[in-house]
C-alpha cells in the first residue's frame, strides 16, 4: 500500500521484522506488521529477557510508553504494550504481552527506571499486577479509590462523586446521582456493520429457525 499520510517517517521497516523474529526466537508468540507498525507479541514470563535483548543487542535504547488495553472477551483480557524507540536507528517498535487479572507481568524497572510509573499507571487503571515493581501504588486516581476505571466494564460515570459538606466541614463521598442517565448513542448504520438485531427482526429470525428445524 502506498503511503499517502504525512505521519512521522521513521527508518524503513524493511527486513527489521525478520531480524527481530530471529533474535527473539522462542520468546516470540506472534508478530505482525500493519499500518507501518511492527508489533511483537511476547510470552508474558519472558518479557524482561525480550526487552533486554532488544535494548542491548538491537539498539532500542528508550522505553517511551507502556499502554494497557482491555479486551473483556478474551481469556487473558489485558494487553500491555511497550513502545520502544531506537535513537541510533531512528526506529520504533511495539512489544506486547497479554495478562489476566491474576497473572502478574514481570517488571521491567530493572531495565529502565522510567518503567516504574508507567507500570503503576497500568496497574492503577487496569489492575494488571507487575511482579517485582518496588513501588506499585495507585498513581492517577484519588487516594483511597476502589476499582480500576479504564476497564471496559467500569462505567464512564464512575461509582462515587464528592462534594464539600458544609455540615461536616470536609469533603464527603456519595454514590453518583445523575439527573439524566449517560446517553451512549448508537450511530452504527443498520445497512453496514450493525452487530445487533433490529427491533422487530427477532420475529422473522424465529420463523426462519422454525423452518430450518422442519
Amino acid at each position: 500500500m502506498t503511503v499517502l499520510h504525512s505521519a512521522p517517517k521513521i527508518a524503513s521497516n524493511e527486513g527489521v521484522l525478520d531480524k527481530l523474529v530471529a533474535a527473539l526466537g522462542d520468546m516470540l508468540v506472534e508478530s505482525t506488521e500493519a499500518h507501518g507498525e511492527i508489533v511483537l507479541c511476547v510470552a508474558r514470563d519472558r518479557i524482561e529477557d525480550a526487552l533486554r535483548c532488544l535494548r542491548d543487542e538491537h539498539e532500542y535504547q528508550q522505553l517511551m510508553e507502556i499502554a494497557g488495553v482491555d479486551y473483556p472477551q478474551r481469556a487473558e483480557r489485558f494487553e500491555v504494550v511497550y513502545m520502544l524507540l531506537s535513537l541510533t536507528k531512528n526506529h520504533r517498535i511495539m512489544v506486547k504481552v497479554s495478562a489476566a487479572q491474576d497473572t502478574p507481568v514481570p517488571t521491567v524497572t530493572t531495565l529502565w527506571p522510567v518503567a516504574g510509573w508507567l507500570e503503576r499507571e497500568v496497574f492503577d487503571l487496569y489492575g494488571v499486577i507487575f511482579a517485582g515493581n518496588p513501588d506499585l501504588r495507585r498513581i492517577l486516581t484519588d487516594y483511597g479509590f476502589e476499582g480500576h476505571p479504564f476497564r471496559k466494564d467500569f462505567p464512564l460515570t464512575g461509582h462515587v462523586e464528592l462534594r464539600y459538606s458544609e455540615e461536616d466541614k470536609r469533603v464527603v463521598y456519595e454514590p453518583v446521582k445523575l439527573a439524566q442517565d449517560f446517553r451512549s448513542f448508537d450511530f452504527m448504520s443498520p445497512w453496514e456493520g450493525a452487530q445487533y438485531v433490529l427491533p422487530g427482526d427477532e420475529k422473522s429470525a424465529g420463523e426462519t429457525d422454525r423452518e430450518d428445524g422442519k
Binding site: 507498525e37 510508553e65 513502545m83 450511530f187
Partner: peptide, 27 residues
C-alpha cells in the same frame, strides 16, 4: 452524526510537542 469509520488496527504516533515527545497510541 455517525462520524467516519477508521480501519481496524493500531498505531503509535509521536510528534515533537514543545515539551517533548507527545505520543498517541490509537487502537
Amino acid at each position: 452524526t455517525e462520524g467516519f469509520h477508521v480501519p481496524a488496527g493500531e498505531v503509535y504516533v509521536a510528534t515533537e510537542s514543545p515539551k517533548g515527545e507527545f505520543g498517541v497510541y490509537l487502537v
